[in-house]
Design a protein around this nucleic acid. Sequence first.
DNA 1: CTAAATTAGTCGCATCTGCAACTATCTTAA
DNA 2: TTAAGATAGTTGCAGATGCGACTAATTTAG
Lengths: 136, 136
Amino acid sequence: MALSGEYQERYGLDIPEWRVLATLGFRNDACSAQYISDCTRTHKSTISRAVMTLMQRQIVERVENAHDRREFRLRLTKEGKTLYQELIPRLLRKEREILSCLTAQERKELACLLGKIEKSLDLVQTRQEADTEQAY
Amino acid sequence: MALSGEYQERYGLDIPEWRVLATLGFRNDACSAQYISDCTRTHKSTISRAVMTLMQRQIVERVENAHDRREFRLRLTKEGKTLYQELIPRLLRKEREILSCLTAQERKELACLLGKIEKSLDLVQTRQEADTEQAY
DNA sequence: CTAAATTAGTCGCATCTGCAACTATCTTAA
DNA sequence: TTAAGATAGTTGCAGATGCGACTAATTTAG
């Protein structure tokens, strides 16, 4: 959608890469690839590849986890944090632009309604074994 | 999303194929591939391939347009109409299921809010030369 | 009328991304 | 303790789809 142009065209990030960046930046703390996969509902192979690319671009780094040597702790590098901080205001501005056709009250209502649906869908999905997300 | 499972798993239709079927079924009248491409915001090559598949499955048929021999008039076959009529109630039921967490009043509000955003986005998009649609 | 520009549709190509198999590691149960 | 099962992450593969070039037909401008 309109938002993705902001990070894709301007920063050369594809969608999974943005998801990794956003998750790490939002949490501001190390986490596993599996965690990112879970909370963005993106297949772990896709996240794996996005992490590889971001490591090559020195946006993300990973360190071994001494307690579980299967997984890695992922976190943003200095450059990664800078990139994240640079992107956030742009995206918020874009979001405001998109929602500018609604009043403050309407925006609040919309968030509330979508929240309800999301909550209800999450139940359904976990109940019947995670659907693949697809648009329309 | 949850809806697509209905036509994908049950009827072997992928998303572009469903879009063709839905457009032709909804209009209940012949139209060009370009028209479908426009109103579903799907690239014409994708629509072209979907139409090919649907023709092989005898769901869609096309006839030459005497007035413009570049384009074809597309329409559903008898089987196509049957399939469409069979799918509609299933999809509506699914939609009701998804929206069942909202009251009637809330559903109306949601439709209204989304309508406003869509309208506003359409203007923006045509102004800056059709973004590619992408989810988050 | 003719040449350039536009439009409908097709096709090759590249990219994206999910699936499933695989390795390595960890956990659980007998 | 050991064997079976679960889990994290990687990779080969295949399907889906957008892009751009191409052909054929039509429209527009000079």
